[in-house]
Computed example of a mutant assay.
Amino acid sequence: MMDSGNPRVFKEIQVEILDAIAYVTIQRPQVMNALTRVTKKELLSFFQSANDSEDYRVIILTGEGDRAFCAGTDLKDMANFSSIDAEQMLWLEHHLNDSIRHCRKPVIAAVNGNALGGGCLIPLICDYSIVADSAKLGFPEINAGLPASIEIAIVHSFVGLAKARELIYFGELFTPQEALDMGLINRVVPKQDVLATAKEVAEKFMAKSPTALRLQKELVNKWIETDFISAVETSIYAAGLAFTTGEPQAAIAKFLSRPKKMQKGNQS
């Protein structure tokens, strides 16, 4: 990591500062950049400190490798969860998502590969999202015995209630072009152009007044947060309740017992 103002070393993410842009990379390509509690805590720590840093003006968030941007929460992290464990993990993820949405600097999602579950939510809460044309997107939580929760509460504001129900009830994957047509993302580009396009967008942000951008972000968040917190709290409780049934644990155990080649693309 290169940050002259606050040198730190992370285990599961990397931060590089170049030309006033912070490139934040999730570094777990062996599991499609699925997030453990460690990953979430590191990302949360970075975004909480981003507001006070003068070393960069824009953040680009991406995943390592060419297979995935982020496959959501690592199922191995949840295999033996109790109800309390599930709620604590989801509160942590909500705090991370909230730190991204409320970061005073523009955050660009450079989606270089598959984005699933919580990983598919990240582009929705960033200020701008660029997705590789070969990626697969979706909210497959229900296929692991879980209700989709936390920031999924805003999806209906993008696509309408009927389409939101379809996306989360069936957990089927969709293409970047479909996501663009639904208004979930901003751009679809060839995989090799994702980071370069993100840099171009970052430069457009940097041409604007930092103060005006910060105030505009605050206003946009106000527009979409009407009763949002109540929706998040209710969804966290529902997900925790699911773990009291034993169904998520059974679905996860079944998934983890499959041959590795069959596990690709099925993180939640």
Rank of each mutant, 00 (worst) to 15 (best):
G5A: 08
P7M: 03
F10E: 05
I17V: 13
A22G: 09
Y23H: 13
V24W: 06
R28L: 08
R28H: 10
P29Y: 09
N33V: 12
T36K: 02
R37P: 05
R37S: 07
T39G: 11
T39C: 15
E42V: 12
E42C: 10
S45D: 15
F46I: 08
F47W: 07
Q48P: 07
N51K: 10
S53D: 04
R57H: 12
R57K: 13
V58Q: 09
I59M: 03
E64C: 04
G65L: 05
D66F: 11
D66H: 13
C70T: 08
A71E: 03
G72K: 02
G72T: 04
T73Q: 03
D74Y: 01
L75N: 01
K76W: 02
D77F: 04
A79N: 00
N80A: 10
N80R: 06
N80G: 09
F81N: 01
S82Q: 09
A86C: 06
Q88D: 09
L92H: 06
L92D: 02
H94C: 09
L96W: 00
N97L: 13
D98L: 00
I100Q: 03
H102D: 13
R104M: 10
R104V: 11
K105S: 05
A109K: 09
V111N: 07
N114V: 03
A115W: 15
G117D: 01
G118A: 11
G119A: 07
L124Q: 12
D127K: 08
D127E: 14
S129T: 06
I130S: 12
V131K: 04
D133M: 04
S134C: 11
A135P: 14
A135E: 05
L137G: 05
P140K: 03
I142Y: 01
N143A: 10
N143L: 15
N143G: 10
A144W: 03
L146Q: 13
A148N: 12
A148E: 04
A153E: 04
V155S: 02
S157P: 07
V159P: 00
G160E: 02
A164S: 13
R165F: 11
E166N: 13
L167H: 04
I168E: 08
Y169H: 08
P176F: 13
E178C: 12
D181M: 14
I185K: 08
R187W: 05
R187N: 07
V188R: 09
P190E: 08
T197R: 08
T197W: 14
E200S: 15
V201Y: 11
A202W: 09
S209H: 04
P210N: 12
P210S: 06
T211N: 12
K217R: 13
V220I: 15
K222G: 14
T226F: 11
D227H: 13
D227V: 00
I229G: 08
E233F: 04
I236G: 01
A238D: 12
G240D: 07
L241E: 15
A242K: 07
F243W: 01
T245G: 02
G246Y: 00
Q249I: 01
A250E: 01
A251S: 13
A253S: 01
F255N: 00
K260D: 12
K264I: 13
S268D: 08
